[in-house]
Amino acid sequence: MKIFWTLLRRELSAFFFSLTGYVIIAAVTFLIGESFAQLIDGLGTDPWPMPVTQMFFGSIYFWMIVLLVSPVITMRLFALEKASGTFETLMTTPVGDFQVVAAKFAAALVFYVVMWLPLLICLFIVGRFTNQASALDSGTVGGMSLGIFLAGGFFLSFGCLASALTRSQMAAAMISLAFGISQFALAWWAKNNPVSEQWQSQLLSCLNIFDQMNDFARGVVDTRAVIFYASVTMLFLFLTLRLVESRRWK
């Protein structure tokens, strides 16, 4: 556990002592701000049809941020260490493979959560200046936070896997971006096609990240979605661990 905390500290310092980390935070803050400016402007003074969090999740901004930023956060994790050779110095100390994977994923997740904090400020401002009680309540904010967290785990764990696959950060980023976009496209397809009896269609509806996120944003925490995200995250982390271990039997 001591080693895990040491590794986590080092991974976090790599995010926060580098310009990249602040560029990512600045870019995300900008995008969140822009999306809220549009939301509020579009709404005017009419009664809001749905909670403001749901509108945010329904906009393209949320998905842009998640899909574009998670590859950028995770591409460095293993690929850079492999390319620079520090992977060798790291793995020849008495650290466990599991500790390394867990620390890297945890650091990415912590950074991701920090990156989303400006959203709370935006919500606070909306809450402060609106008199529509239905627009924002603690349930929707909680659901939204959980949704963002789970989606982050899902995409970041895949990013870890992609980064462990290759020595090139670019390749890692492209692999996880392709995965993110394919998930997005599948969800889009599922959204535009009604669920039928066929098993393909059933499966697709389970993978529909739009509907899941929509539920979270309304403050509805569906255990199926929670279990889906948590288990897939675990699966990707397990595969990453196997990849890191693979150098021992290759």
């Binding site: 080092r10 310092s13 790599a14 002592f17 580098s18 620079s84 050779g85 520090t86 060798e88 110095t89 020849t92």
Partner: peptide, 13 residues
């Protein structure tokens, strides 16, 4: 105590 070839380090630390 192992020092690999080219002595890789974390440059930002």
């Amino acid at each position: 105590g192992y020092m690999p070839e080219n002595n890789p380090l974390y440059p930002e630390m």
